[in-house]
Design a protein around this nucleic acid. Structure first.
Lengths: 157, 157
DNA sequence: CATGGAAAGTTTAGGCTTGAAGTAAAAATC
DNA sequence: GATTTTTACTTCAAGCCTAAACTTTCCATG
C-alpha cells in the first residue's frame, strides 16, 4: 500500500472523493438546469430572481442590498442588477432608510409577493418530483453527510 | 397523518427532499466557488475552460464543437466562445476535417496539454482537501445514492 | 443534377457573475 | 470642525450562458 494513501477496495480515497465531487456536481447541475428551464418557460423568470425574491419574502420589512448579497453569497454589483430588473417589472421596490441616505431597503411589492408564492409552490413540487427516487433513509443519510461537509467547507473559508 | 404524504419523524418527505436539495446546492456552490477562485488566482483560468480542456485532453485526436457541447451539456454557441479564447491564448486549435467543410476538430496544443496537466493535478488535490472530512464509508454511501439519483434524473430528461 | 431539409457552427441579444473602480454618505479620528 | 476611513451602493469590463436567428455545407430524394 502506498504510504499516506487510505484505500477503499482498490481505489485511493482521493480518487473516490474526486468521483464523488463529479457526481455531486452532475446532480446539482441536472436539477438546477431543470429549475431554470421551468422558471423560464412557465414564469418568464430566472433562478437568481427566484433566490432574491425568496430572501425578500422572508423579510417583509425589507432587506438592504448588502444583506441580500451576503445571504446569497453573491457580489454587491450582481444584486444591483437583479433588483433593478425586479423593480422594472413591479415585483420589488427600494424604500429609503431614514437616517442613512446611502442605503435603501428592498421589499417585494404585493405583486411580487403573489408571484413568488406561486413560484415557490411550483418549485417545491418540482423538487419533490425530481427527488422522488430517494426514500426517507436516503434523504436522511445524504442530509447528514452534506450537513457535515458544508460545516467543514464553511470553516475552511 | 395526511393522506398521500409519507412522513419521516414529523416532517413530510417532500419537505425533507427540499431541504436535501438546498444542502446539495450549497455544497456544490461552496466547492465550485473555491475551484473557480483558485483557477483564477493560481492559473488565470476559469472552470468552463478547465472543463473544455479536460474533455479535449481525453481525446488527443480532437473533438468536434458539437461533441464538446454535448459532453459538457452546454450550448453550441457557448463552446464557440470558450474555444475562441483558448485558441487566442495558444492552448487549443481548430483542425479542418477532411471531407466536411462545416466541421472542425478542436485539439489541445502541446502548451494546452502541459497547462491542463498542471491544472488537473492541482484540481484533484483541492478536491481531496475540501472533502477530507468524509471517510470511505461516507464517500461510498453518497456515491451510491448520487448514482441512483443521476440515473433517475437523466431518465426524466 | 436540382432542391429541400438536416447538420455544424457562428452570431446576437439579453441576463448572470465577478472583481475592480468609482461615488456618495456616514463614522471615526484628530 | 476638518480630515480620514469605512460603509453602501453603483458602474464597468470581461467572461459565461442560453435560445434564437443565421450561414454554410452536406445529403437525400426526386
Amino acid at each position: 500500500m502506498t504510504p499516506q494513501s487510505v484505500e477503499t477496495g482498490d481505489e485511493p480515497l482521493s480518487k473516490s472523493r474526486l468521483r464523488l465531487w463529479l457526481k455531486l456536481l452532475k446532480a446539482s447541475n441536472l436539477i438546477e438546469d431543470q429549475i431554470r428551464r421551468r422558471l423560464r418557460d412557465q414564469y418568464q423568470s430566472t433562478l437568481p430572481r427566484f433566490d432574491v425574491m425568496s430572501a425578500l419574502s422572508r423579510s417583509p420589512e425589507g432587506l438592504k442590498m448588502s444583506q441580500i448579497s451576503e445571504m446569497l453569497r453573491v457580489s454587491n454589483g450582481n444584486v444591483t442588477g437583479i433588483v433593478d430588473r425586479l423593480t422594472d417589472e413591479g415585483l420589488a421596490l427600494r424604500v429609503a432608510v431614514p437616517g442613512d441616505r446611502r442605503a435603501s431597503l428592498v421589499r417585494l411589492t404585493p405583486k411580487g409577493q403573489a408571484a413568488f408564492a406561486e413560484h415557490a409552490a411550483a418549485h417545491e413540487s418540482w423538487i419533490d418530483d425530481m427527488l422522488d427516487g430517494l426514500n426517507a433513509d436516503d434523504v436522511e443519510g445524504m442530509i447528514r453527510r452534506l450537513d457535515y461537509l458544508n460545516e467543514t467547507l464553511e470553516d475552511k473559508e
